[in-house]
Design a protein around this nucleic acid. Structure first.
Lengths: 226, 226
DNA sequence: AACAAAAATGAAATAGTTTCACTTTCATGA
DNA sequence: TCATGAAAGTGAAACTATTTCATTTTTGTT
């Protein structure tokens, strides 16, 4: 009973979190891990990535260090993630998911007849606050952009906080039910990613306040032109 | 006479091109290469980088391949560039320099009483056209951003096309002689970098035209708020 | 043509990612 | 209860890239 070729697992799964966000080449959806242990291992790996990114930046995310920090072996890491990039994308997606949840809640909590601009401003505030609370988010955003460069092909640009929160936002505030122009939506997504990134690395309170106003102005311009 | 310890070269120089742009930690200015051969070798290395980036993306820029393509050995590469990142930054700076030259010429050629907005629009057109003519620029811009992440510290943000061209622009068009707020200047720099990047990867002509208008709008907003 | 400085070399050290043959753990039903 | 197979986990070794440095070659000067 010593020889037992491992079942051909046909590549690791990319767990639930990013099923929607994943625009990877063409990988079919993977089955979810069945055992509790597996879910915990996956979570431990992602937590290790976040810890390393928050503490030492994305460059510190080596497969060996992540596996060590998660208390598993490198081989295990590769059961859950196709490669290092996939790992970083999954970690990014995990932070986005949390931020989106906060924004979605804020969106629901908005008072009845609120103006579009005020609504956008409040969502931005929620976004920034939530992003701030996740120390790894800025680093992971950068890592994500290095892996998935800005795309002209906006057909699939619902990834990221803006992309995910914009559909419900527009559903509520768009003049008609018409979906927004995908090109301009992509622009908004890319633009806000950059500006929020800049905001997050800014520590000086006065600079932050000033920057916030700039970001608002550009966001409102972009939203108005949608 | 076989043993001749090489003079301690105290690290390779970063040639003239980027002396201004270089915000590297604190490296003192390096002496320029003295022999013609050296200048040609350096140029060949940078040309090899551009070729590889344009043809296969920045990931194809491995030290071995660059050295091969330039017809020198890897060791030689390290005489001219501290490491792979330094090489990529230098290649990026080289493209920026060419684009800035075009923009500077356009700035000089502007008619006398032209309005600020029109001037900005014409500079943008020059920028986009020049960037387009350099197939490696978009890829190098991305590589540069991965290496030198967006900085809150805007004290030194004169690197990049916007940073370099904005001083002469403002000198001519600013209401008073007051220098622009560095925070907003940094924002403009980061913002335009992203939007131009997006423009450059957009191939569809109609999308390009639409995108160009969006970029103009954001540029004018940012310039107006400077 | 002798020399020193500059430039170039490339094999080896280093550091990271990825694979894979194998072991261990788990849950199930005979 | 224990036999079984699928799921999860292991870690040494193969790879792939970057970087170093002891040494050689080229160049300009005297």
């Amino acid at each position: 009973m010593t020889k037992l070729i491992q079942a051909p697992v046909e590549k690791p799964f990319r767990g639930g979190a990013d099923a929607a966000a994943g625009l990877a080449e063409s990988e079919p959806a993977r089955p979810l891990p069945v055992q509790d242990r597996a879910l915990r291992t996956r979570a431990a790996l992602l937590a290790a990535v976040e810890m390393l990114v928050a503490g030492e930046g994305a460059a510190a995310v080596t497969t060996t260090r992540v596996a060590d920090a998660a208390g598993v072996s490198v081989g295990t890491l590769y059961r859950y993630f196709a490669d290092r990039d996939d790992l970083l994308l999954a970690a990014y997606d995990a932070t986005v998911e949390r931020i989106v949840a906060v924004c979605a809640k804020e969106l629901e909590a908005l008072p009845g007849g609120i103006a579009v601009d005020d609504a956008a401003r409040r969502l931005l505030a929620a976004y920034l606050e939530a992003a701030e609370a996740i120390p790894s988010h800025a680093g992971l955003l950068k890592a994500m952009r290095a892996i998935r460069p800005v795309e002209a092909d906006h057909s699939d640009e619902r990834s990221g906080v803006i992309g995910e929160i914009l559909a419900p936002f527009l559903a509520r505030f768009a003049a008609s039910g018409t979906a927004a122009d995908p090109l301009r939506l992509n622009l908004l997504n890319v633009l806000m990613g950059t500006l929020v990134d800049l905001y997050l690395v800014t520590r000086n309170p006065e600079d932050r306040a000033a920057l916030r106003e700039e970001i608002e102005a550009h966001m409102l311009l972009a939203v108005a032109r949608l």
